[in-house]
Simulated assay, not measured.
Amino acid sequence: MKPLTENEIRASFVNASKREVGQASLPDLAGLDWERLDYLGWRDSKRPLGYAVVVVDDEPRGIVLRAAPPPAALGGRRRSAICAWCEDPIETQDVSLYVAKRSGAEGRKGDTVGTLICTEFACSANVRRKPTFAELGSTDPDAREQFVERRVAGLRERSARFVAQV
């Protein structure tokens, strides 16, 4: 992902008011490894919000996401789930339901769209992890590299498709 400035990030949000954009907490941009990010995602430290900036049609598009309360907070058990963006079958314990208000008139009417995403937005790291033999069926380094490339491409496509729905 191309490095973004604070102004570029704030200007990219498609489903937030000016007030919401101004109140958004941002991650430490200087400490990010931009070359290993397929999208920029982070959680608000003070509110149950998440943010994601995804490249759609070569432009950054940011969305504000509301995190559903974890089942444990509602008296239930946390269940395993697969992130809809990275589809990692190994990291299934730290996945949360995130809901985004749609942009424009639909969002002002209260329309939303939701999906399961890694709670800490670790999808870029998940798709780059070394695949297990069961996933790949081979120990060939070239096959491993191609497998990771397909996972990276899938993450980019699925996250961009979700943002386009917003």
Rank of each mutant, 00 (worst) to 15 (best):
residue 1 M to G: 15
residue 2 K to S: 09
residue 3 P to S: 11
residue 6 E to H: 00
residue 6 E to S: 14
residue 8 E to G: 00
residue 9 I to A: 09
residue 9 I to L: 09
residue 10 R to N: 05
residue 13 F to C: 09
residue 13 F to T: 02
residue 14 V to L: 04
residue 15 N to C: 07
residue 15 N to F: 10
residue 15 N to H: 06
residue 17 S to K: 08
residue 17 S to D: 03
residue 18 K to L: 13
residue 20 E to N: 02
residue 21 V to E: 07
residue 21 V to H: 01
residue 23 Q to E: 12
residue 23 Q to M: 11
residue 25 S to D: 14
residue 25 S to Y: 01
residue 27 P to C: 11
residue 27 P to L: 09
residue 27 P to D: 11
residue 29 L to D: 11
residue 29 L to N: 03
residue 30 A to T: 09
residue 31 G to V: 02
residue 32 L to M: 09
residue 32 L to W: 06
residue 34 W to H: 05
residue 34 W to G: 01
residue 36 R to Y: 09
residue 39 Y to A: 15
residue 40 L to Y: 05
residue 44 D to Q: 06
residue 44 D to I: 10
residue 45 S to R: 15
residue 50 G to W: 05
residue 51 Y to P: 03
residue 51 Y to N: 07
residue 51 Y to S: 00
residue 54 V to C: 07
residue 55 V to I: 10
residue 59 E to Q: 15
residue 59 E to T: 15
residue 61 R to V: 05
residue 62 G to V: 06
residue 67 A to V: 11
residue 68 A to C: 05
residue 69 P to T: 08
residue 74 L to G: 12
residue 76 G to D: 15
residue 77 R to D: 14
residue 78 R to C: 07
residue 78 R to L: 11
residue 78 R to T: 13
residue 78 R to I: 14
residue 79 R to I: 06
residue 80 S to E: 10
residue 81 A to T: 02
residue 82 I to C: 05
residue 84 A to T: 04
residue 85 W to G: 00
residue 87 E to D: 09
residue 88 D to R: 12
residue 90 I to Y: 02
residue 95 V to A: 06
residue 100 A to P: 01
residue 105 A to S: 10
residue 105 A to W: 11
residue 105 A to I: 14
residue 106 E to N: 08
residue 108 R to M: 12
residue 108 R to I: 03
residue 115 T to I: 02
residue 116 L to M: 10
residue 116 L to F: 15
residue 117 I to S: 03
residue 117 I to Y: 03
residue 120 E to T: 15
residue 122 A to H: 07
residue 124 S to C: 10
residue 125 A to M: 08
residue 125 A to N: 12
residue 127 V to W: 00
residue 128 R to Y: 04
residue 129 R to A: 13
residue 134 A to N: 09
residue 136 L to A: 11
residue 139 T to M: 13
residue 140 D to A: 08
residue 141 P to L: 13
residue 142 D to S: 12
residue 143 A to G: 01
residue 144 R to W: 01
residue 150 R to K: 15
residue 150 R to Y: 00
residue 153 A to H: 07
residue 153 A to D: 10
residue 154 G to L: 03
residue 157 E to N: 05
residue 157 E to M: 12
residue 160 A to K: 06
residue 160 A to Y: 11
